[in-house]
Amino acid sequence: MENPRHWRIRKQRYALVGEVCPHCEAKIFPPRDVCPNCGGEAKTQFNFSGKGTVFSFTVMNDAPAGYEKNLPYAVALVKLEEGPIVTAQLTDLGDQPVQIGMPVEMVTRRIRDDGDEKGIIVYGYKFRPAMSSAQ
């Protein structure tokens, strides 16, 4: 497994740490140091709240290598409260059906490991149905 590739982006993966543009206030995720809205330099760190809604989703029945263990699972485009849309797995659905517009919140979960229980475990953001009292 390519450890450096995962290690390098651990902050954005673990906790949705992105950027805010100092010129136009746009919130940026994933961080890219250049504002996609106004084109200015944007290197100021911004912690996203993790709250959002399901913009669209699909259910994976055939997973890419390394993700088979969780099949079947839902993948969604989540529109974050602060604006950006991120692609992520949905988790903790239990027997709840996924619906467009459903409020979700970020949790940090196991994304994958190399399967033979010898390699590193990769952790990162997923989204689950928002817990009502946590609003």
């Binding site: 673990y14 263990k69 969780n70 797995q89 988790t91 903790d92 949790v107 940090t108 979960r109 196991r110 994304i111 475990i121 952790y123 997923k126």
Partner: peptide
């Protein structure tokens, strides 16, 4: 715990 949970993920929450 669900399939994607362990002591690290649960501790984080």
């Amino acid at each position: 715990a669900g399939l994607d949970e362990d002591v690290i993920t649960m501790s984080i929450e």
